[in-house]
Structure formats: structure tokens, C-alpha cells
Write a protein that binds this DNA or RNA. Sequence first.
DNA 1: CGGAGCCACGGATTATAATCCGCATCTCAT
DNA 2: ATGAGATGCGGATTATAATCCGTGGCTCCG
Lengths: 75, 75
Amino acid sequence: MDQLAKAVGERVRYRRRACGLSQDNLALLSGIDRSYVGRIERGEVNITVEKLYRIAKVLVCEPATLLPKIQDIHS
Amino acid sequence: MDQLAKAVGERVRYRRRACGLSQDNLALLSGIDRSYVGRIERGEVNITVEKLYRIAKVLVCEPATLLPKIQDIHS
DNA sequence: CGGAGCCACGGATTATAATCCGCATCTCAT
DNA sequence: ATGAGATGCGGATTATAATCCGTGGCTCCG
């Protein structure tokens, strides 16, 4: 149902794996709770832009690349 | 410290004015509290990506365009 | 078998995002 | 001078983002 959260979750997961990191690694490096990054990737939560930047920094990419295009969300 | 919030605030304000909208207009159209829109533009708050998308939709732009480049944030 | 790494998932709590008031200031038009 | 529209800003409250636990289920390897 929450299309947006799922879309960013997929992108975070994809990018994380591309970086060869575990959820634990990402959590520790970004200073985010380990169980919370799981929830992010599963699209269960609606994160803040601050968290988005912390994650993007660790995954060495622009925050914008973790966001789906607005038209991809048929809300 | 809230470099990030200030940066997105500036962009929202700039884009809102480009659309010829008041804070009140943006608030009503996006379903966000008016005083909160003011705080966003002043960089006082750390918004969620869901709010970012609601705003971007009203301002007819990609959410990504409201986000500064990661290198522009000296954290 | 046993342990280690990785992940899903939940409950309870804490931090904070977001709302709902309200009042003050300023500009501009009447 | 007055009233309407736009914004700043603050306090108090509610909703929810985020944390801090934990359990259990995999797979892979000794």
C-alpha cells in the first residue's frame, strides 16, 4: 500500500548490495539502528531526509538516486 | 548543523514562488499545516520523504530537485 | 552437531515530526 | 486608519519516526 516507502526500500537494498554491505554494516556505518534499516528496505517506514542522506553517504551515491520518480508513484 | 534542512527550505521557497503560490496555498494544496510549511522553508524542521513528495507534486517538480547535492552539505 | 553471519519480524519505549491553535508584524490597497 | 493577505514565530498537543531490546529462521562452513 505504501508505494513510496517500498520504492525507496528497494533502491536502498539494491544499492547496499552493490556496495557489498550487510544491513548491519550499513546500520553501523550510517549510525542507524540495525532493525530499522531492515524496516526501511522492507518499505515499512517513512524515513526523514536526514536519514536518506546518512544512507546515501555510506552507499556513496546521491540521495536523489534513492528516490523514485514522482510518476512512478500512483498514489 | 541543520544545513540540510536550510538547503531544502530554500529550494522549496524558491520553487513555490516560481509557481506563484503563497505558503497558505501550498499548505492547502499539499494537505500540510500552514505553520509547518513556514518552518520547512525556514529550515527549522527535518521533513519526511512523504512530505517531500506531497510538496513536489504541488510544485510540479521532481522531489530530487528539492534536495541539495550531497557535497553541498558540509557535515 | 555447533557456531557465525545475515536477515525477518515483533513489542515496548523514546525522540521528534507534524498538527493545531494563537498572536504579532509588514505590505499594500481602499 | 483600516482591513485583507502574507509570513514569522511560539506553546501545547498528537502522531509517528526511530531506537533498543529480543526471538527465530535460514545458509554456509568447521
